[in-house]
Every structure is written in structure tokens, then in C-alpha cells.
Design a binder for these strands. Structure first.
Length: 182
DNA sequence: CTCTCGATTAGCT
DNA sequence: GCTAATCGAGAGA
């Protein structure tokens, strides 16, 4: 599966996190595809293997969590076959469980903004460094398919956010937004 | 070792 | 709209 297909596949799936301070989950509403050794916006660009990016080269099913701007964690699902660095960045979820816990973690923030952004997703669900390289079939962080169907035409494609440095790759419409009607 | 800058966010103008 | 916050990966010397 190409990363763009995987990014669309994960829309509507549930991201579940069990932490010592409690359980929280959300339905994935926004993703971005990163992938292949040609994508200049991807950390795996040019087959660049480092301590940080090594997990991107693993077979799909692991978490890739890294720190950005010195303060925000980004959560990715590794999706490629072995040695092909492909991943899906989860940019937004709608919290569906553990709301009391999330309200505490996101104190003072309006509910609609609890997890509307890649850094916010991690802040709301308690995702951090300890989840990096974690197995997404494990018991602390996992993905559930509960059969939610996305209506035809409900997903908007746009270029990816914050990757202007990537030249023509920044123009690829690899961001997928499921706009849930109210 | 040193330097640069980022797959962002919140807060202020 | 603008930018400070904050730190480690990655690159180069």
C-alpha cells in the first residue's frame, strides 16, 4: 500500500492509548502521507538512516514518535515494507473516550482544539518519547477499526503543512482531511 | 564540538 | 499576522 493510500485508510480508525494515568482514545480525522526515498519532505528522504529515522525503515505497524521544535511530539504510523521508509502522520483526532483525562491534560483548551494538530494529538493522548518504536498491536498504544465508514467525497486533499523546504514535494496533495459534518 | 533549524503551538498585536 | 518557546537530530569541521 502506498503511503497516500495508507493515509486515507487510517481516517476513521481509532487511536487508543493506555497510560499509567488513564485511558484515552480518538477517531482519526486528519493525516499526512510521507514516504519513499524520493520524498524530500520525509525524514527517510534519500534513504537517510539515522538513529532517529531507523524505525521508518521497519515493516509497517510500529509507531514513529519524534520531538519537533523542541516541544511538540509528532505521532506517525510506519506503513512501508522493510527498508522502505513510509509513514502516516496523524494530524488530528476527535476525542471519543477518556474525556475527563484529556480535559485535565488540556486544561483551559476548548474541546474542539483538544487534538486538532499533530502536537495537540500527542498532548491530548499522552503520547511521548516512550511510545517511539512501539508496536501498534501492543497494549499501551494501538489502532482499532470499528467499521466507521467515510462517506464518498467527505475527504479533502491539500498539500502538506509546514514542509515548504521540500520544493516540489511540498506541493503534493498528500494531506487528507475528513470533515465531519456537525 | 558547534551551529542551524524544524512534519508546531499559544499568545499577543 | 507575528514570533518566542525550547531541544535534539543532523551536518560539517
Amino acid at each position: 500500500m502506498k503511503p497516500t493510500q495508507a493515509a486515507q485508510f487510517f481516517l476513521g480508525k481509532f487511536l487508543c492509548v493506555q497510560e499509567p494515568d488513564g485511558y484515552a482514545e480518538g477517531i482519526i480525522t486528519e493525516t499526512e502521507a510521507y514516504g519513499g526515498v524520493r520524498d524530500a519532505a520525509s525524514h527517510g528522504f534519500g534513504n537517510r538512516r539515522t538513529d532517529r529515522t531507523e524505525i521508518m525503515f521497519a515493516p509497517g505497524g510500529a509507531a514513529y514518535v519524534y520531538l519537533c521544535y523542541g516541544m511538540h511530539w509528532m505521532f506517525n504510523i510506519v506503513t512501508g515494507p522493510l527498508n522502505s521508509p513510509e509513514a502516516v502522520l496523524v494530524r488530528a483526532v476527535q476525542i471519543t473516550g477518556g474525556k475527563e483525562l484529556v480535559r485535565r491534560r488540556r486544561r483551559g483548551v476548548a474541546e474542539k482544539d483538544w487534538a486538532s494538530g499533530p502536537g495537540r494529538v500527542c498532548a491530548a493522548l499522552g503520547i511521548g518519547r516512550h511510545h517511539n518504536r512501539g508496536d501498534l498491536l501492543g497494549e499501551t498504544i494501538w489502532i482499532e477499526d470499528r467499521g466507521v465508514k467515510i462517506p464518498r467525497g467527505a475527504v479533502k486533499r491539500t498539500p502538506r503543512i509546514g514542509v515548504d523546504y521540500a520544493g516540489i514535494w511540498a506541493l503534493k496533495p498528500w494531506r487528507f482531511v475528513w470533515e465531519i459534518p456537525k
